[in-house]
Write a protein that binds this DNA or RNA. Structure first.
Lengths: 101, 101
DNA sequence: TAGTCATTTTCCTATTTAGCTAAATAGGAA
DNA sequence: TTCCTATTTAGCTAAATAGGAAAATGACTA
């Protein structure tokens, strides 16, 4: 739970998620939308991946990043569950995935 | 949107929210549940208040802090809306409050 | 008034984080 | 192999953050 909030506590990282919501993209394509240098984007992606909210696929020399919207919303519903009835219902209705963190 | 994620990106602050979910508490009562010194708790509460997820009421020399669960969940649903249909429905159904940022 | 209690503010230090450039890694093409 | 492109890693500096101790504020009590 710590990782996801640390990951989301960054405007550039939240912007990256919005870009990935449109379609999966390579690091370079993402970087084209930012002023930031590519290594910085790469590190932001590593943080998002560590938090489980994006997935990466090696495509030859490219790395394609995909939004894991289910993990993003799932973790936030889990967090909200103790504070909000609707979130608790949603969280409980969600299939619990095994293994992945 | 930045303030709330910065606020939640701290385990002590998330623990404080859980305590306040049970009942409103003074700074001292909250601090009794932590190893941390009271000034540190006070500063964490200021961050949470700035993010709009707790409210404070002066009670003589005491300050009573209350969880603003509606603001907490409301902001997270707003964030999730672009990523999750259920969140979008909930966010749109919520009465938009004016003025309070 | 002085004294006490609850809380916040100030000031300080240690740690973490963000961003950069340069170098390293790895895949594809010639 | 060599070259080129995409991405990550390393190393650095500047800025932000967390926490503590001590001082300041504000409210109640004797």
């Amino acid at each position: 739970m710590d990782k996801i909030f640390k990951a989301l506590a960054s405007e550039p990282r939240r912007r990256i998620l919005h870009h990935l919501a449109a379609e999966p993209m390579t690091v370079g394509e993402i970087a084209d939308n930012f002023e930031m240098a590519m290594p910085s984007i790469s590190k932001h992606l590593a943080v998002l991946k560590e938090a489980g909210v994006v997935r990466e696929q090696k495509r030859g020399q490219y790395v394609l990043y995909t939004l894991a919207a289910d993990r993003l919303s799932g973790q936030l519903y889990d967090f909200l569950a103790p504070f909000c009835d609707q979130a608790r219902e949603i969280a409980e209705a969600r299939p619990r995935r095994r293994g992945r963190e």
